[in-house]
Design a protein around this nucleic acid. Sequence first.
DNA 1: TGGTGGAAGTTGAGGATTCAAGTACACGAG
DNA 2: CTCGTGTACTTGAATCCTCAACTTCCACCA
Lengths: 174, 174
Amino acid sequence: MDRMNTAPTSADPGEPHWLTDEEQRVWRAYIDATTLLEDHLDRQLQRDAGMPHVYYGLLVKLADAPERRLRMTELAMSAKITRSRLSHAVARLEKSGWVRREDCPSDKRGQFAVLTDEGLEMLARHAPGHVHAVRQAVFDRLTPEQQKSLGEIMRIVAEGLQPSEAGADLPWLR
Amino acid sequence: MDRMNTAPTSADPGEPHWLTDEEQRVWRAYIDATTLLEDHLDRQLQRDAGMPHVYYGLLVKLADAPERRLRMTELAMSAKITRSRLSHAVARLEKSGWVRREDCPSDKRGQFAVLTDEGLEMLARHAPGHVHAVRQAVFDRLTPEQQKSLGEIMRIVAEGLQPSEAGADLPWLR
DNA sequence: TGGTGGAAGTTGAGGATTCAAGTACACGAG
DNA sequence: CTCGTGTACTTGAATCCTCAACTTCCACCA
């Protein structure tokens, strides 16, 4: 892959503008690290707690919520996943007994996902192992400055993708 | 599910040792950013090029390799995925015509994954859009210092998980 | 009131991923 | 030469995720 030309195709903005060598090194390091880490955590939780990392994250969010319950849409947004994915996930977590659905009294379309007692207990049982894995893979290896820097960087990236990332680049709104 | 070695779960450390509030904020920012970014890139490539981000990454690695070919195991290691996953992936990419398999002459068990001409052309066609997406989501938002920092951090994390990550936390080696 | 557009959530089909097995070959020791 | 162990890769089933409908219900307004 070598190319410095300026192919048009107005669909894509401006000229190619490739990544520099240094940027490529950063990007590959990012891909490698995130791939390895997600895989590592998935395996750890699958083995110990019998569920993928995302599912575990859902339970944690429920545990932190008032009444240990959240509306489906809230939970989905909080976890940055689609409602569809959440729907499937909750169905599975319900079968495992860690989550229960409840109708929302004020909105008949609404559903609450509620963390069950078994779910909470399961979290208590496996949280230490998970925290250990995270610590070992990430925090134990970084200096305090790097940890701070990582937080800032990730916040910036997340915010850029988060809000109405659609609206931001819709021509007629500019 | 097998259960050997039910010793006092040597995997779990002594006392919990939770994340501090600040560490939790960093960790959540990381999860949010990586989830959103992966999703964003997957969608972009699925829409434009008809394949998930990982598959695209495989093609890029082949394009960068001498002869545009790599042994299956090499490719899998380079992309940080399992051989099984790669096997399925290459089967799919083969059906789409972007990749072709070739027997290895020196080792009859071996297979090469080879990027086809259509695969290369496809990359040329969609690379600008992909680079643009990456740039827009990441590099355009970070200062040069942050980019450098990100690279260092990700390299550290990747290296910690990469090598014989198993051996590193095997009790009898400590 | 009754109609309409949108919000909340679910569903099913098709892809993608994982895990455990399985096939085929390589290679060194006897 | 052949046995045993390990490597390279594939396969199938179960699970998970995405995408595009689809159902039900809310909110608003004329």
